[in-house]
Amino acid sequence: MSPVLSVSAVKKTYKSGQVALHEIDLTVQKGEIFALLGPNGAGKTTLISIICGLVSMTSGQVLVAGHDIVRDYRAARAMIGLVPQEIALDIFATVEDTVRFTRGLFGRRGAPDRIEQLLRDLSLWDKRGARTMELSGGMKRRVMIAKALSHDPDILFLDEPTAGVDVNLRRDMWEIVRRLRDRGVTIILTTHYIEEAEEMADRVGVIDRGRLVLVEETAALMRKFGKRRLSIMMQQRMEAIPPELASWPLRLEAGGERLVYDFDAKAPDTGIPRLLRDLGTAGIDYKDLETSRNSLEDIFVDLVENGA
């Protein structure tokens, strides 16, 4: 399958001399949900802006479904929808007019049914006649999404889609993302909410100081770095690990009140039942058990800090 997006050796140096991106290479397949993670100023927005035509690249090439974004910009851009980080709307226009405007701008024939469906999906239908300046922040963001989807793009870019967004909108947003994915739309998003990337994204790219330091399937990444951990809260404080348990890779934490066991959740035998039996045999009482898992955030912090 040919990639829907292919970024090769894309570099960006701003006029000030600041290097925003050092040679970025990235391919995204059709129908994928790809999450770009990275600290502020890492170059996430610059990369998206280059692909969408808002910023010109210093060198390199970007193909959207095989169309060069510079030479064949019409075909490339017609496939892309962008929801930028900041809300930017014509404040005097009505909701319906501004969505229809974007569809026209992208060269699509007016389709009242399609616009109605879109506004209904985004709970904007009742507000269709309202000027955008009369809307709340969350509603404005919905309008931004409606505009980006108005021309039925094949690739949707969401730059920090859930930053400063209330719970309802966040839930709706992910619902929309799921539905779009089911329709085969490719979604590329940047986010600070790593749990969301972990839950939603098929693959994750970590960008730091203008370099793409890692691209990995979310599941593989979690497998590789995502160790699980069993914490056993002791009934009585333990000075040292008793000899009966010497064969287990255990360590004591919290001043001997917690026994910690790291294991691989994907392994056929996690060892947990045996460990618990051995504890019983050794006459060690415990009051609580807890399992946890390395989050993508831990992995991310690890990568960015150790990559320094």
């Binding site: 969408c52 035509g53 808002l54 910009y73 014509d90 701008l105």
Partner: peptide, 17 residues
């Protein structure tokens, strides 16, 4: 005005010369 309100992003990202 689109520059001021930043809605110009839409024009720049559209398939229009």
């Amino acid at each position: 005005f689109p520059k001021f309100t930043r809605t110009i992003f839409e024009l720049l990202s559209a398939p229009i010369s």
